[in-house]
Design a protein around this nucleic acid. Structure first.
Lengths: 321, 321
DNA sequence: GTGAAAGCGCTAACAA
DNA sequence: TTGTTAGCGCTTTCAC
């Protein structure tokens, strides 16, 4: 089933069929009608592969997710899927499973498929740079949430502002001795949050770093309270750590809300449904996805963009007075 | 950068370049070497669009997820992504957002892109059937987790067996008056679990159905205990409902483990990290993904397959004695 | 084992 | 406005 079949049935040339079905040129009402009804009768649908080869554009973007099991990323993926589908753009998904080598592979496979743009949440602030820069030579690359290169577009949250807001919120509640519990500092978001904390918090030197896990949240909580007994808030780099911290506090007999507040990042289901609910900074995913679309479809040679969106603290019982 | 450039540099024909790079025909060691080094020198990578058009195969499968925000599906997606990437197959992702019209659209767009197979978790047991049957005329369709048509392959969990196992587990603990809290009965899994419950449970007529939400889990718990005061277990169709049920029980002053047990389905992060941890049936995602790959790449005209895998109950404090 | 050439399905340049 | 035709990049006959 090809344009030829439709053309034959409609009694027109294949070019006319193409013109009608791609809506890219004006055609007489008569031809338009004949082609449409012929296509409908045959149940014809254009072959996107042929079109892509000819147009040199696949209307598809590649998305490389650092770690799809991290609860935040499915939310991001959904926002992107929505936004891109809305533009008629398909999403070719790849998971880097937190591994720079797999990330490199994924990028390479997506480029071979001629994606019109590549969206990526870099695995590592440092080690993903080359992969991104190389991809950026071949197509439009948009870094999302995390960043590793200054040569490619970036759409993310303003972590400094978010950290500042959270600290202000804590200060209002009289909490001025927070400890920062980071996860893997190779992750750019964690890194930025930690740096902002160090710069802005009254206890900026109270920083612990570990990995992305509930257990690390637990361990770090014990360590924090031992090293700094006057701790009145645990400022966690992500939700999983925050939940671990809350659990540990409760295991140690603390009440929540109580003397030690806990706050996380990303506002995933985990903290919203937790008992007690945990405060967390929400990223404006829909806006970020819209910006990603805009950059992805932008005609090349646009100067490198850095779009930072404000995060909003969702205050919940874990930081209540 | 095309085969021509490589051919010119290697001093061979484009046919030879193709033969080497696709590894589909034997070539002399000399030519092989010359082509490989020319390709490496140029940084040439084959254009998958050209290849797809010629081969009439995209090496890409479409995946239509009923609702990507449902925590279970990202896990499934990851398992699929792993399995298909391992075979060199790309995954084109679409989200149906629980809407049969959007599902229909998504399928249509994926077919236009000439996916080699279509994986789908049908939104509705009844209303997704036509979409699936129509797609099945055009390519290999594999229904995953949920099913709507008997004419297309299905890979899922044996819900009858799982329900039976859970009931046996509850019986061992002396709990013989369970209530089933279902979600939307349009979802095939919920429907199957409910039917199995009705058939196998001593209190098979104690069934409540609602929707996929935490609140429904809460509401249903209240209703269950009012209507059947001797209830000793809440058998929930999914984890979100189970967490809602646990929360409600605690709000009502019940202890857990305690007089009323709670069990869910899908073994998502939600129940594993909950306090107390909630028992749940785990689906063998990796095995299911492997089966999906096998069916997706199977040469057409294979009889319709129905592959059911056993679920395993992860017993946790919510069903402890 | 190798090269020349056709053609996958589509669209855009060109001609009418 | 419409048709003819070339060609996107690749692979696979077919002939040697």
């Amino acid at each position: 089933m090809t344009v030829h079949d439709v053309a034959r049935l409609a009694g027109v040339s294949t070019a006319s069929v193409s013109r009608v079905l791609s809506g890219r040129r004006t055609v007489s009402a008569d031809v338009d009608e004949r082609v449409r009804s012929a296509a409908a009768e045959l149940g014809y649908q254009v072959n996107a592969v042929g079109r892509s080869l000819r147009r040199q554009s696949t209307e598809t973007v590649g998305l490389v997710i650092a770690d799809i099991t991290n609860l935040f990323f499915p939310s991001l993926t959904k926002a992107l899927e929505d936004a891109f589908a809305h533009q008629g753009l398909g999403l070719l998904l790849a998971d880097a499973a937190n591994d720079v080598a797999r990330e490199r592979d994924a990028v390479s496979r997506l480029l071979a498929r001629q994606v019109d743009a590549l969206l990526i949440t870099p695995v590592s602030r440092l080690q993903s740079r080359r992969t991104i820069d190389e991809a950026n030579q071949r197509t439009t690359v948009v870094q999302l949430d995390r960043r590793a290169s200054t040569k490619a577009h970036y759409v993310g949250m303003d972590n400094s502002q978010a950290v500042s807001d959270v600290l202000a919120h804590l200060a209002e509640l009289g909490r001025t001795s927070p400890v920062f519990i980071g996860s893997d500092p190779h992750i750019s978001t964690t890194w930025e949050r930690q740096r902002a904390f160090s710069r802005l918090a009254p206890t900026g030197d109270r920083v612990l770093t570990g990995d992305f896990s509930l257990d690390w949240g637990r361990t770090a909580t014990i360590e924090a309270l031992e090293r700094w007994p006057d701790t009145d808030a645990l400022f966690c780099a992500d939700d999983l750590i925050a939940v671990g911290a809350v659990e540990q506090l409760r295991a140690m007999g603390h009440r929540l809300p109580g003397p030690v507040a806990v706050v996380g990042f990303d506002d995933t289901l985990l903290v919203r449904l937790h008992t007690p609910p945990v405060s967390s900074v929400r990223q404006p995913l829909a806006e970020m996805a819209a910006a990603a679309v805009e950059l992805a479809v932008s005609t090349a040679n646009l100067a490198v963009q850095r779009r930072l969106f404000p995060g909003t603290l969702q205050a919940r019982p874990s930081t209540a007075p």
